[in-house]
Amino acid sequence: MEKTDVYIDFERSLGPWIGRTSKMVDYYIQEALEKHGLDLTKEQMVVLKKVNDQNGLNQNELAFLTYRDKSSLARLLAKMEKKGYLYRQQNADDKRINEVFLTPMGQDIFQECKVVINKIIQTIEKNIDESEIQQMIRILKKVQQNFSGGLPD
């Protein structure tokens, strides 16, 4: 492969700004959850949200919806089961399929974390008007769509 000198203006490209912002949001979410005494990681919160939206979701679908590989999701679910937030149950028709359900404790902690996340959202959107928020969402959807064809050569 031939070496070429490529100049990238990182301050004027979306990638680094999206990455930095994502890391900041992740950090503040984790800090807020800990500050409010919630024994929950951001990743666990995402799983709780997906299972809350569709209780009984199968584990493979959950991996897809949370952008996780099956083995890392299995480890995450095992930790959450130990905490008492959810349980897995084999599908009655196909024993190879595990369905994931929230426990009452999982439902409670999800309700508590929604209050914390709402405050984070208010902080994120502070001083940004509704039209700018909608424009940002449209732009981020376009960025995501750009990746739907896979990685460039």
Score class of each variant (00 low, 15 high):
T4A: 15
D5W: 07
D5Q: 00
V6T: 15
I8R: 13
S13R: 01
L14V: 14
L14M: 10
P16S: 03
W17H: 07
T21I: 03
K23M: 01
D26T: 14
D26R: 14
G37I: 09
G37D: 02
L38P: 05
L40D: 03
L40W: 01
L40S: 02
K42A: 15
K42I: 06
K42N: 14
E43M: 02
Q44N: 06
M45R: 14
V47C: 03
V47G: 04
L48E: 10
L48D: 03
K49C: 12
K49T: 08
N52L: 01
Q54F: 14
L57I: 15
N58C: 12
N58E: 11
Q59M: 12
Q59P: 02
N60E: 09
E61K: 13
A63V: 06
A63M: 05
F64K: 15
L65I: 00
R68N: 05
R68V: 01
D69L: 05
S71T: 15
S72C: 06
A74H: 11
R75K: 14
L76C: 12
L77Q: 04
A78N: 14
K79M: 06
K79W: 01
M80F: 08
M80L: 01
M80Y: 03
E81F: 00
K82Q: 10
K82C: 01
G84H: 07
G84R: 08
Y85K: 07
Y87G: 04
Q89R: 12
N91H: 13
D94T: 10
D94Q: 00
I97G: 03
L102W: 04
Q107D: 09
I109M: 05
F110L: 06
C113V: 03
V115S: 07
I117N: 10
I120A: 02
Q122G: 11
Q122K: 14
T123F: 11
I124A: 01
I124H: 07
E125G: 09
I128P: 12
I128C: 07
I133T: 13
I133E: 07
Q134S: 06
Q134R: 14
I137G: 07
R138E: 13
K141C: 10
K141Q: 14
K142V: 12
V143R: 03
V143S: 04
Q144S: 11
Q144L: 12
Q144M: 09
Q145T: 15
S148D: 15
G149Y: 06
P152K: 10
